[in-house]
Design a protein around this nucleic acid. Structure first.
Lengths: 210, 210
DNA sequence: AGTCATATGAACTCGCTGTCCATATAAAGG
DNA sequence: CCTTTATATGGACAGCGAGTTCATATGACT
Protein backbone atom coordinates (compact mmCIF):
# COMPACT_ATOMS: atom_id res chain seq x y z
CA UNK A 1 0.00 0.00 0.00
CA UNK A 2 2.52 2.48 1.08
CA UNK A 3 5.04 1.34 -1.53
CA UNK A 4 2.81 2.30 -4.45
CA UNK A 5 4.73 5.00 -6.22
CA UNK A 6 1.96 7.11 -7.58
CA UNK A 7 -1.66 7.55 -6.53
CA UNK A 8 -1.90 10.27 -3.90
CA UNK A 9 1.65 11.42 -3.72
CA UNK A 10 0.84 15.02 -3.30
CA UNK A 11 2.18 16.88 -0.37
CA UNK A 12 5.34 15.99 1.49
CA UNK A 13 8.81 15.03 0.58
CA UNK A 14 9.49 12.90 -2.46
CA UNK A 15 12.73 11.22 -3.47
CA UNK A 16 15.08 13.71 -4.97
CA UNK A 17 15.98 11.63 -8.02
CA UNK A 18 12.33 11.19 -8.90
CA UNK A 19 11.63 14.88 -8.61
CA UNK A 20 14.67 15.87 -10.64
CA UNK A 21 13.78 13.42 -13.35
CA UNK A 22 10.25 14.76 -13.60
CA UNK A 23 11.43 18.33 -13.69
CA UNK A 24 13.97 17.66 -16.41
CA UNK A 25 11.40 15.80 -18.45
CA UNK A 26 8.92 18.65 -18.15
CA UNK A 27 11.59 21.21 -19.03
CA UNK A 28 12.64 19.24 -22.09
CA UNK A 29 9.03 19.04 -23.20
CA UNK A 30 8.54 22.76 -22.92
CA UNK A 31 11.88 23.43 -24.58
CA UNK A 32 11.13 21.33 -27.64
CA UNK A 33 7.51 22.36 -27.92
CA UNK A 34 7.72 26.11 -27.37
CA UNK A 35 11.36 27.09 -27.32
CA UNK A 36 13.74 28.43 -24.74
CA UNK A 37 11.54 31.31 -23.71
CA UNK A 38 8.91 28.86 -22.47
CA UNK A 39 11.31 27.29 -20.00
CA UNK A 40 10.53 29.39 -16.94
CA UNK A 41 10.63 28.21 -13.37
CA UNK A 42 6.93 28.86 -13.08
CA UNK A 43 5.89 26.83 -16.08
CA UNK A 44 8.32 23.98 -15.51
CA UNK A 45 7.22 23.67 -11.91
CA UNK A 46 3.59 23.60 -12.97
CA UNK A 47 4.21 21.08 -15.74
CA UNK A 48 6.26 18.81 -13.52
CA UNK A 49 3.81 19.09 -10.64
CA UNK A 50 6.62 20.25 -8.43
CA UNK A 51 7.14 23.33 -6.36
CA UNK A 52 9.06 26.31 -7.58
CA UNK A 53 11.11 26.31 -4.41
CA UNK A 54 12.46 22.90 -5.27
CA UNK A 55 13.65 24.09 -8.66
CA UNK A 56 15.35 27.13 -7.21
CA UNK A 57 17.28 24.86 -4.91
CA UNK A 58 18.74 22.77 -7.70
CA UNK A 59 19.16 25.01 -10.68
CA UNK A 60 20.72 28.46 -10.66
CA UNK A 61 18.71 29.79 -13.58
CA UNK A 62 15.99 28.80 -15.96
CA UNK A 63 18.57 28.71 -18.73
CA UNK A 64 20.73 26.25 -16.85
CA UNK A 65 17.69 24.07 -16.31
CA UNK A 66 16.82 24.22 -19.99
CA UNK A 67 20.36 23.30 -20.95
CA UNK A 68 20.52 20.35 -18.61
CA UNK A 69 17.14 19.17 -19.81
CA UNK A 70 18.25 19.33 -23.40
CA UNK A 71 21.59 17.62 -22.93
CA UNK A 72 20.03 14.92 -20.77
CA UNK A 73 17.26 14.08 -23.17
CA UNK A 74 19.01 14.35 -26.49
CA UNK A 75 21.79 11.79 -26.16
CA UNK A 76 23.60 12.97 -29.20
CA UNK A 77 26.11 10.67 -30.70
CA UNK A 78 29.53 12.21 -30.41
CA UNK A 79 31.30 10.38 -33.15
CA UNK A 80 33.65 11.32 -35.88
CA UNK A 81 34.21 9.08 -38.84
CA UNK A 82 37.93 8.37 -39.18
CA UNK A 83 38.67 6.59 -42.39
CA UNK A 84 42.05 8.20 -42.87
CA UNK A 85 40.75 10.57 -45.53
CA UNK A 86 40.40 13.88 -43.78
CA UNK A 87 38.45 15.64 -46.49
CA UNK A 88 35.85 12.90 -46.71
CA UNK A 89 35.54 12.53 -42.95
CA UNK A 90 35.29 16.23 -42.39
CA UNK A 91 32.74 16.67 -45.13
CA UNK A 92 30.58 13.95 -43.62
CA UNK A 93 30.90 15.51 -40.22
CA UNK A 94 30.01 19.00 -41.35
CA UNK A 95 27.07 17.77 -43.38
CA UNK A 96 25.75 15.96 -40.34
CA UNK A 97 26.24 19.06 -38.25
CA UNK A 98 24.39 21.24 -40.72
CA UNK A 99 21.63 18.67 -40.89
CA UNK A 100 21.34 18.79 -37.11
CA UNK A 101 21.24 22.59 -37.05
CA UNK A 102 18.58 22.76 -39.73
CA UNK A 103 16.27 20.23 -38.14
CA UNK A 104 12.90 21.68 -37.28
CA UNK A 105 13.32 21.57 -33.55
CA UNK A 106 17.02 21.19 -32.91
CA UNK A 107 18.17 24.28 -34.76
CA UNK A 108 16.00 26.80 -32.95
CA UNK A 109 16.67 25.10 -29.63
CA UNK A 110 20.43 25.30 -29.99
CA UNK A 111 20.23 28.84 -31.29
CA UNK A 112 17.98 29.75 -28.39
CA UNK A 113 20.30 28.20 -25.84
CA UNK A 114 23.29 30.06 -27.26
CA UNK A 115 21.17 33.20 -27.30
CA UNK A 116 20.15 32.99 -23.68
CA UNK A 117 23.71 32.04 -22.77
CA UNK A 118 24.78 35.56 -23.74
CA UNK A 119 23.03 36.90 -20.68
CA UNK A 120 23.07 33.80 -18.47
CA UNK A 121 26.57 32.84 -17.32
CA UNK A 122 25.31 29.62 -15.78
CA UNK A 123 23.87 28.51 -19.07
CA UNK A 124 27.01 29.57 -20.88
CA UNK A 125 29.12 27.41 -18.59
CA UNK A 126 26.78 24.46 -18.93
CA UNK A 127 26.80 24.78 -22.70
CA UNK A 128 30.57 24.82 -22.88
CA UNK A 129 30.94 21.96 -20.48
CA UNK A 130 28.33 19.63 -21.91
CA UNK A 131 28.15 20.58 -25.54
CA UNK A 132 30.66 22.77 -27.29
CA UNK A 133 33.62 21.72 -25.19
CA UNK A 134 33.45 17.99 -25.87
CA UNK A 135 32.75 18.58 -29.53
CA UNK A 136 35.66 20.92 -29.89
CA UNK A 137 37.95 18.43 -28.18
CA UNK A 138 36.80 15.67 -30.46
CA UNK A 139 37.34 17.73 -33.58
CA UNK A 140 40.76 18.71 -32.33
CA UNK A 141 41.70 15.08 -31.74
CA UNK A 142 40.67 14.22 -35.26
CA UNK A 143 42.79 17.03 -36.63
CA UNK A 144 45.74 15.91 -34.54
CA UNK A 145 45.50 12.48 -36.08
CA UNK A 146 45.24 13.90 -39.57
CA UNK A 147 48.26 16.05 -38.94
CA UNK A 148 50.17 13.05 -37.64
CA UNK A 149 49.30 11.33 -40.92
CA UNK A 150 50.80 14.29 -42.74
CA UNK A 151 47.55 15.61 -44.11
CA UNK A 152 47.70 18.96 -42.35
CA UNK A 153 50.40 21.58 -42.17
CA UNK A 154 52.63 21.36 -39.14
CA UNK A 155 52.56 25.05 -38.36
CA UNK A 156 48.77 25.16 -38.18
CA UNK A 157 46.85 26.17 -35.07
CA UNK A 158 44.25 23.44 -35.21
CA UNK A 159 41.94 25.25 -32.81
CA UNK A 160 41.51 27.98 -35.37
CA UNK A 161 40.51 25.42 -37.94
CA UNK A 162 37.70 24.40 -35.62
CA UNK A 163 36.47 27.98 -35.46
CA UNK A 164 36.65 28.31 -39.22
CA UNK A 165 34.46 25.29 -39.77
CA UNK A 166 32.02 25.10 -36.90
CA UNK A 167 32.06 28.84 -36.37
CA UNK A 168 31.01 29.37 -39.97
CA UNK A 169 28.00 27.10 -39.45
CA UNK A 170 27.02 28.77 -36.20
CA UNK A 171 27.39 32.07 -38.00
CA UNK A 172 24.75 31.12 -40.54
CA UNK A 173 22.57 29.70 -37.80
CA UNK A 174 22.72 32.70 -35.50
CA UNK A 175 22.97 35.51 -38.03
CA UNK A 176 20.96 34.14 -40.91
CA UNK A 177 22.03 36.38 -43.76
CA UNK A 178 22.84 33.38 -45.91
CA UNK A 179 21.21 29.95 -45.94
CA UNK A 180 22.63 27.02 -44.03
CA UNK A 181 22.72 24.10 -46.43
CA UNK A 182 24.67 20.93 -46.98
CA UNK A 183 26.21 22.39 -50.12
CA UNK A 184 27.55 25.13 -47.90
CA UNK A 185 29.06 22.51 -45.61
CA UNK A 186 30.81 20.78 -48.49
CA UNK A 187 32.22 23.97 -49.98
CA UNK A 188 33.24 25.12 -46.53
CA UNK A 189 35.47 22.12 -46.01
CA UNK A 190 37.06 22.60 -49.41
CA UNK A 191 37.70 26.25 -48.68
CA UNK A 192 39.28 25.50 -45.36
CA UNK A 193 41.52 22.75 -46.68
CA UNK A 194 42.56 24.30 -49.98
CA UNK A 195 42.65 27.95 -49.07
CA UNK A 196 41.31 30.88 -51.00
CA UNK A 197 44.38 32.09 -52.82
CA UNK A 198 44.54 31.80 -56.58
CA UNK A 199 48.32 31.69 -56.84
CA UNK A 200 49.35 28.34 -55.51
CA UNK A 201 51.86 29.12 -52.77
CA UNK A 202 54.06 26.30 -54.04
CA UNK A 203 55.58 28.56 -56.69
CA UNK A 204 58.78 30.22 -55.61
CA UNK A 205 58.08 33.41 -57.59
CA UNK A 206 55.17 35.26 -56.16
CA UNK A 207 53.51 36.94 -59.10
CA UNK A 208 53.70 40.70 -58.47
CA UNK A 209 50.50 42.69 -58.59
CA UNK A 210 51.07 44.38 -61.91
CA UNK B 1 7.78 81.40 -19.27
CA UNK B 2 5.56 79.21 -21.31
CA UNK B 3 7.81 79.29 -24.37
CA UNK B 4 10.71 77.72 -22.56
CA UNK B 5 11.29 74.41 -24.21
CA UNK B 6 11.97 72.31 -21.16
CA UNK B 7 10.87 73.04 -17.62
CA UNK B 8 7.33 71.79 -17.35
CA UNK B 9 6.93 69.96 -20.59
CA UNK B 10 4.96 67.16 -19.08
CA UNK B 11 1.60 66.42 -20.45
CA UNK B 12 0.50 66.74 -24.02
CA UNK B 13 1.89 65.98 -27.39
CA UNK B 14 5.51 66.64 -28.13
CA UNK B 15 7.26 66.63 -31.50
CA UNK B 16 7.80 63.10 -32.62
CA UNK B 17 11.42 63.58 -33.58
CA UNK B 18 12.23 65.00 -30.19
CA UNK B 19 10.55 62.14 -28.38
CA UNK B 20 12.19 59.50 -30.53
CA UNK B 21 15.58 61.07 -30.02
CA UNK B 22 15.15 61.10 -26.26
CA UNK B 23 13.97 57.52 -26.20
CA UNK B 24 16.86 56.30 -28.31
CA UNK B 25 19.32 58.19 -26.17
CA UNK B 26 17.89 56.68 -23.00
CA UNK B 27 17.88 53.21 -24.51
CA UNK B 28 21.48 53.55 -25.62
CA UNK B 29 22.44 54.68 -22.14
CA UNK B 30 20.80 51.69 -20.53
CA UNK B 31 22.24 49.37 -23.15
CA UNK B 32 25.82 50.48 -22.62
CA UNK B 33 25.55 50.78 -18.88
CA UNK B 34 23.70 47.63 -17.96
CA UNK B 35 23.43 45.45 -21.05
CA UNK B 36 20.64 44.27 -23.24
CA UNK B 37 18.56 42.90 -20.42
CA UNK B 38 18.18 46.38 -18.96
CA UNK B 39 16.55 47.71 -22.12
CA UNK B 40 12.92 47.15 -21.20
CA UNK B 41 10.01 49.30 -22.26
CA UNK B 42 9.35 50.17 -18.67
CA UNK B 43 12.83 51.34 -17.86
CA UNK B 44 13.46 53.13 -21.14
CA UNK B 45 10.17 54.97 -20.83
CA UNK B 46 11.03 56.00 -17.29
CA UNK B 47 14.55 57.07 -18.24
CA UNK B 48 13.40 59.04 -21.26
CA UNK B 49 10.52 60.63 -19.41
CA UNK B 50 8.16 59.31 -22.02
CA UNK B 51 5.13 57.11 -21.85
CA UNK B 52 5.28 53.40 -22.48
CA UNK B 53 2.41 53.72 -24.92
CA UNK B 54 4.55 55.90 -27.13
CA UNK B 55 7.30 53.32 -27.26
CA UNK B 56 4.90 50.54 -28.12
CA UNK B 57 3.69 52.57 -31.04
CA UNK B 58 7.11 52.91 -32.62
CA UNK B 59 9.07 49.83 -31.72
CA UNK B 60 7.82 46.29 -32.06
CA UNK B 61 9.97 44.91 -29.25
CA UNK B 62 12.44 45.97 -26.64
CA UNK B 63 15.15 44.21 -28.61
CA UNK B 64 14.37 46.20 -31.74
CA UNK B 65 14.54 49.38 -29.71
CA UNK B 66 17.89 48.36 -28.24
CA UNK B 67 19.24 47.58 -31.69
CA UNK B 68 18.16 50.88 -33.17
CA UNK B 69 19.56 52.72 -30.20
CA UNK B 70 22.90 51.01 -30.59
CA UNK B 71 23.19 51.47 -34.33
CA UNK B 72 22.11 55.09 -34.09
CA UNK B 73 24.54 56.04 -31.39
CA UNK B 74 27.59 54.07 -32.37
CA UNK B 75 28.32 55.46 -35.83
CA UNK B 76 30.76 52.78 -36.72
CA UNK B 77 33.06 53.42 -39.58
CA UNK B 78 32.26 50.98 -42.31
CA UNK B 79 35.52 51.04 -44.14
CA UNK B 80 37.79 48.50 -45.60
CA UNK B 81 41.37 49.32 -46.39
CA UNK B 82 42.04 48.50 -50.02
CA UNK B 83 45.72 48.75 -50.78
CA UNK B 84 45.70 45.98 -53.36
CA UNK B 85 47.28 43.51 -50.97
CA UNK B 86 44.44 41.31 -49.82
CA UNK B 87 46.28 39.58 -47.01
CA UNK B 88 47.40 42.82 -45.44
CA UNK B 89 44.01 44.48 -45.87
CA UNK B 90 42.16 41.50 -44.50
CA UNK B 91 44.48 41.14 -41.56
CA UNK B 92 43.99 44.78 -40.67
CA UNK B 93 40.26 44.40 -40.98
CA UNK B 94 40.03 41.30 -38.83
CA UNK B 95 42.29 42.75 -36.19
CA UNK B 96 40.07 45.80 -36.02
CA UNK B 97 37.01 43.58 -35.78
CA UNK B 98 38.48 41.54 -32.96
CA UNK B 99 39.49 44.73 -31.22
CA UNK B 100 35.91 45.94 -31.49
CA UNK B 101 34.48 42.68 -30.16
CA UNK B 102 36.83 42.62 -27.21
CA UNK B 103 36.18 46.18 -26.13
CA UNK B 104 34.75 46.41 -22.65
CA UNK B 105 31.32 47.54 -23.68
CA UNK B 106 30.98 46.75 -27.35
CA UNK B 107 31.63 43.03 -27.11
CA UNK B 108 28.96 42.20 -24.57
CA UNK B 109 26.50 44.52 -26.26
CA UNK B 110 26.89 42.88 -29.65
CA UNK B 111 26.82 39.43 -28.11
CA UNK B 112 23.72 40.39 -26.18
CA UNK B 113 21.98 41.73 -29.25
CA UNK B 114 22.72 38.57 -31.20
CA UNK B 115 21.57 36.58 -28.21
CA UNK B 116 18.23 38.31 -27.90
CA UNK B 117 17.84 38.15 -31.67
CA UNK B 118 17.51 34.38 -31.37
CA UNK B 119 14.11 34.83 -29.80
CA UNK B 120 13.20 38.24 -31.20
CA UNK B 121 12.58 38.18 -34.97
CA UNK B 122 12.27 41.95 -35.09
CA UNK B 123 15.69 42.38 -33.57
CA UNK B 124 17.09 39.73 -35.85
CA UNK B 125 15.81 41.60 -38.88
CA UNK B 126 17.11 44.92 -37.60
CA UNK B 127 20.51 43.41 -36.92
CA UNK B 128 20.77 41.97 -40.38
CA UNK B 129 19.59 45.12 -42.05
CA UNK B 130 21.66 47.63 -40.14
CA UNK B 131 24.70 45.69 -39.09
CA UNK B 132 25.62 42.31 -40.42
CA UNK B 133 24.14 42.84 -43.87
CA UNK B 134 26.09 45.96 -44.80
CA UNK B 135 29.29 44.52 -43.39
CA UNK B 136 28.86 41.32 -45.28
CA UNK B 137 28.22 43.22 -48.49
CA UNK B 138 31.31 45.32 -47.96
CA UNK B 139 33.49 42.31 -47.32
CA UNK B 140 32.07 40.64 -50.38
CA UNK B 141 32.85 43.68 -52.52
CA UNK B 142 36.41 43.65 -51.29
CA UNK B 143 36.73 40.00 -52.16
CA UNK B 144 35.28 40.61 -55.60
CA UNK B 145 37.92 43.20 -56.26
CA UNK B 146 40.67 40.92 -55.01
CA UNK B 147 39.39 38.19 -57.23
CA UNK B 148 39.31 40.56 -60.18
CA UNK B 149 42.95 41.31 -59.44
CA UNK B 150 43.61 37.60 -59.57
CA UNK B 151 44.32 37.15 -55.90
CA UNK B 152 41.50 34.72 -55.24
CA UNK B 153 40.48 31.52 -56.92
CA UNK B 154 37.79 31.89 -59.55
CA UNK B 155 35.73 28.93 -58.40
CA UNK B 156 35.44 30.25 -54.87
CA UNK B 157 32.12 31.04 -53.22
CA UNK B 158 33.14 34.31 -51.65
CA UNK B 159 30.20 34.33 -49.29
CA UNK B 160 31.60 31.27 -47.60
CA UNK B 161 34.89 33.03 -47.09
CA UNK B 162 32.99 35.67 -45.16
CA UNK B 163 31.52 33.03 -42.87
CA UNK B 164 34.91 31.47 -42.35
CA UNK B 165 36.45 34.71 -41.20
CA UNK B 166 33.77 36.68 -39.44
CA UNK B 167 31.94 33.56 -38.34
CA UNK B 168 35.06 32.31 -36.62
CA UNK B 169 35.31 35.55 -34.65
CA UNK B 170 31.65 35.49 -33.69
CA UNK B 171 32.14 31.88 -32.66
CA UNK B 172 34.78 32.84 -30.12
CA UNK B 173 32.66 35.74 -28.97
CA UNK B 174 29.43 33.82 -28.48
CA UNK B 175 30.79 30.44 -27.41
CA UNK B 176 33.89 31.44 -25.53
CA UNK B 177 35.77 28.16 -25.35
CA UNK B 178 38.88 29.80 -26.76
CA UNK B 179 40.12 33.37 -26.35
CA UNK B 180 39.44 36.05 -28.93
CA UNK B 181 42.73 37.79 -29.60
CA UNK B 182 44.45 39.70 -32.36
CA UNK B 183 46.89 36.85 -32.85
CA UNK B 184 43.88 34.71 -33.54
CA UNK B 185 42.74 37.19 -36.17
CA UNK B 186 46.08 37.15 -37.91
CA UNK B 187 46.39 33.37 -37.96
CA UNK B 188 42.79 33.10 -39.07
CA UNK B 189 43.44 35.13 -42.20
CA UNK B 190 46.47 33.03 -43.03
CA UNK B 191 44.51 29.83 -42.56
CA UNK B 192 41.72 31.01 -44.78
CA UNK B 193 44.01 32.19 -47.55
CA UNK B 194 46.57 29.39 -47.53
CA UNK B 195 44.41 26.46 -46.56
CA UNK B 196 45.12 23.76 -44.05
CA UNK B 197 46.48 21.02 -46.27
CA UNK B 198 50.10 20.03 -46.02
CA UNK B 199 50.44 19.10 -49.69
CA UNK B 200 50.66 22.29 -51.70
CA UNK B 201 47.97 21.99 -54.36
CA UNK B 202 50.24 23.77 -56.83
CA UNK B 203 51.40 20.50 -58.29
CA UNK B 204 49.63 19.68 -61.53
CA UNK B 205 49.21 16.09 -60.46
CA UNK B 206 46.89 16.01 -57.53
CA UNK B 207 48.49 13.48 -55.26
CA UNK B 208 46.03 10.59 -54.99
CA UNK B 209 45.25 9.38 -51.51
CA UNK B 210 47.39 6.26 -51.74
C1' DA C 1 -8.67 80.48 -33.62
C1' DG C 2 -10.26 75.95 -34.31
C1' DT C 3 -9.53 71.29 -35.30
C1' DC C 4 -7.07 67.21 -35.40
C1' DA C 5 -3.44 64.15 -34.26
C1' DT C 6 -1.01 62.28 -30.72
C1' DA C 7 1.96 62.07 -26.53
C1' DT C 8 0.87 61.66 -21.90
C1' DG C 9 -0.13 59.72 -16.95
C1' DA C 10 -2.64 56.55 -14.54
C1' DA C 11 -4.57 52.33 -13.78
C1' DC C 12 -5.17 47.71 -14.92
C1' DT C 13 -4.39 42.44 -15.95
C1' DC C 14 -1.23 39.09 -16.49
C1' DG C 15 2.99 36.23 -16.14
C1' DC C 16 7.54 35.47 -14.16
C1' DT C 17 10.98 36.14 -10.44
C1' DG C 18 12.55 35.21 -5.98
C1' DT C 19 11.41 34.55 -1.24
C1' DC C 20 8.77 33.71 2.85
C1' DC C 21 5.96 30.43 5.65
C1' DA C 22 3.62 26.01 7.96
C1' DT C 23 2.85 21.36 6.86
C1' DA C 24 3.17 16.61 5.33
C1' DT C 25 5.89 12.94 4.45
C1' DA C 26 10.15 10.17 3.11
C1' DA C 27 14.37 8.53 4.97
C1' DA C 28 17.30 7.49 8.82
C1' DG C 29 17.95 6.04 13.76
C1' DG C 30 16.45 3.96 18.07
C1' DC D 1 7.69 -0.24 15.42
C1' DC D 2 8.25 4.42 16.73
C1' DT D 3 10.84 8.80 16.71
C1' DT D 4 13.51 12.20 14.63
C1' DT D 5 15.22 14.71 10.98
C1' DA D 6 15.46 16.32 6.33
C1' DT D 7 13.05 18.21 2.76
C1' DA D 8 9.38 18.73 -0.86
C1' DT D 9 5.13 20.88 -0.87
C1' DG D 10 1.24 24.58 -1.51
C1' DG D 11 0.17 29.14 -0.65
C1' DA D 12 1.06 33.69 -0.20
C1' DC D 13 3.72 37.62 -1.05
C1' DA D 14 6.21 41.85 -3.21
C1' DG D 15 8.51 43.45 -7.27
C1' DC D 16 9.09 44.01 -12.08
C1' DG D 17 8.04 43.95 -16.95
C1' DA D 18 4.66 43.19 -20.83
C1' DG D 19 0.97 44.97 -23.01
C1' DT D 20 -3.57 47.37 -23.00
C1' DT D 21 -7.25 50.92 -22.08
C1' DC D 22 -8.85 55.49 -20.91
C1' DA D 23 -9.38 60.49 -20.57
C1' DT D 24 -6.67 64.51 -21.12
C1' DA D 25 -3.43 68.03 -22.58
C1' DT D 26 -1.11 70.09 -26.13
C1' DG D 27 1.69 70.57 -30.59
C1' DA D 28 0.80 70.98 -35.52
C1' DC D 29 -1.94 72.03 -39.34
C1' DT D 30 -5.87 74.64 -41.71
Amino acid sequence: MTSQPSPRRGRGRRPAAEVREGVLRAAAGLLLAEGVKAVTFDRVAAAAGSSKVTLYKWWPSAGALAAEAYFTHSEQRLEFPDTGDLRADLTAQMRAFVRLLTEDRTGPVIAGLIGVAQTDPELSAAFSRHYSGPRRALALATFEKARARGELRDDLDLRILVDQLWGACYHRLLIPDEPLTEEFAVALVDNALDGALARRPGDPDEAPAA
